[in-house]
Design a protein around this nucleic acid. Structure first.
Lengths: 224, 224
DNA sequence: ACCTATATTGACCGATCGGTCAGCACCATC
DNA sequence: GATGGTGCTGACCGATCGGTCAATATAGGT
C-alpha cells in the first residue's frame, strides 16, 4: 500500500472488491442466500476463499452489501413527478426505465427477486418503510390524474405493481423466456418490441390519451 | 401393509408422503434447491431425517416430484381455444384462472419461480418442449384474432408473458406486496379488485371489444 | 408361536459449510 | 538489513450437508 494514510483505498483493492461483488452477485442471484457458498464465489472470482472473508468480513455482510448496492441503483432513476406532469410521458418513461434497469443489472434484479422469494428477511424494513412511502406518494399523484380525467380511475397501486411485474419478468424469468423463444438471450429488437408493446397496452388500458413524445431506448444508458 | 399386492399403497403411507411434500414445498420454494436442507424439511414435517429419504429416495427425486406435481396442476386448467373463440372471454378467463392458481398453490408457484431463477436446470426440457408448443399454438390463434380485427395487432408472445407476469407477481412477490400494503396477506376483496384491474387494462389495452359475460371468482375453486 | 416383509430411526460416513488464525510475502522506512 | 505494517492464504475448526446402514419395531399370514 502507498504511504499516504490508513483510510486510503488502493486501486488494487477496489478492483479486487469489484470482482468479488460481481462473482457474488451471480451466485447469490441464482441460488439465494442459503444456497450460495463462499467457495463457489471464490472460485468464480479466482481467489482463495479466505480472501473473500478478508475483504468482505462475512457471508452476510457481503450479501447485505450487494442488496444495498442494488437498491442504490434503483433509487438513482427515481425521478420526481407532480400532478401537473403528463401521465403518458411519466408512465412511458417509467416502463422504459424499468426495462433498461433490468437489462443493465440482470444479476442484481435476480438477487432482489430471490430475496423477496425467501420472505425478504433482510429487506422487510426497506419494503415497509422507504419503498412503501415511495408507492404511496406516486399513488396519490396518479389518483389525482384520474380525478382530473387524464386517465381511467384505476387503483394506482395495482398499476405500479403491473409495471414492475411485467418489466421485471424479462430479466428474472430470462431462463423461461429464452427457453420458450428458443434463443439464448433477448435481442435489441426484442427489447424495443416488448417496451413498445407494454407502453401500448398499459397506456391504452389505463385510458391515457395525451400525446407522448417518442423516447429513444438505449440498453446501456438510461434515456432522458 | 395389507396382503393384496406389492404395488398397493397404504393410506398411512399416502398421508405421510403428503405431509413430506407439503413441508418440502415450503422449504424449497423459500430457499431454492441448494438452499433447502433435508433436516429442515424433516423438522417441519415432524419426522426424522432418515424417514424423508426412506420415502423419497433422495433430495433430487423429492424436488423433481414437486416440480412435476406443480406442472400437472398447471396443465389441468389449460383449456382449449379456437380462432372462433371470443377473445374477451378467453383472455378474461386466462387472467382470472392464473390469479386463482397462484392463490391456490402459492408454495408451488414460488417453487417454480425459484427453479427459473436458478436457470431452470431441471425444467429446461419442459420449457423448450411442451411449454414452447403451448405458447406457439396460442400465439397462432391470437394472431388470427388480430387479423380478424377482433383486437389490436400486438405480439401474442408478449401478451402471454404479460398475463403470466402480472398475475404471478401477487404470489411470488407476496412478501413485497404485503410489505408495501402494510398487510400480512391479500384479502378476498384485494384479489377481486386486482383481477378486475388486470382484466380492464389488458383487454382495453389490446383493443378487445366484444362483450364479456361477467365470470365469478372463487379462490378455492377454478371458475368455469 | 413363528416367519416374513415392511416401517422406522439412531448412529454414522465423507464432503462441504462459514469462519478463524497463524504465518509468510511484500514493501516503505529508518 | 532490521523493523513494522499490511496483504494474503493454507490449514484447520465445529457444524451441517446428503446419504447409508444395521438394528429394531410392527403387523399379517400360517
Amino acid at each position: 500500500m502507498t504511504a499516504v494514510s490508513a483510510t486510503h483505498e488502493s486501486p488494487s483493492r477496489e478492483r479486487i472488491e469489484a470482482s468479488i461483488l460481481i462473482a457474488a452477485e451471480e451466485v447469490f442471484s441464482q441460488h439465494g442466500y442459503r444456497g450460495a457458498s463462499l467457495q463457489v464465489i471464490a472460485d468464480r472470482a479466482g481467489l482463495p476463499k479466505a480472501n473473500i472473508l478478508y475483504y468482505m468480513g462475512s457471508k452476510q455482510s457481503l450479501y447485505v452489501r450487494l442488496l444495498n448496492r442494488m437498491m442504490r441503483r434503483w433509487n438513482e432513476v427515481l425521478e420526481d413527478i407532480t400532478p401537473e406532469s403528463d401521465p403518458a410521458t411519466v408512465l412511458s418513461d417509467f416502463i422504459r426505465t424499468k426495462m433498461v434497469l433490468g437489462q443493465r443489472y440482470p444479476e442484481g434484479s435476480k438477487l432482489f427477486a430471490a430475496e423477496i422469494l425467501a420472505g425478504a428477511p433482510f429487506l422487510s424494513d426497506y419494503l415497509a418503510g422507504e419503498l412503501r412511502e415511495w408507492v404511496a406518494s406516486r399513488a396519490k399523484i396518479i389518483r389525482q390524474w384520474s380525478v382530473q380525467g387524464k386517465m381511467d380511475a384505476v387503483d394506482p397501486r395495482w398499476l405500479i405493481f403491473l409495471i414492475w411485474s411485467s418489466t421485471q419478468h424479462y430479466t428474472e424469468y430470462s431462463a423461461q423466456v429464452s427457453g420458450i423463444l428458443g434463443r439464448d438471450a433477448l435481442t435489441e429488437d426484442d427489447l424495443e418490441s416488448i417496451s413498445a408493446f407494454l407502453e401500448h397496452v398499459i397506456l391504452k388500458g389505463c385510458g391515457v390519451t395525451a400525446p407522448v413524445p417518442k423516447p429513444s431506448i438505449d440498453a446501456y444508458g438510461v434515456e432522458k
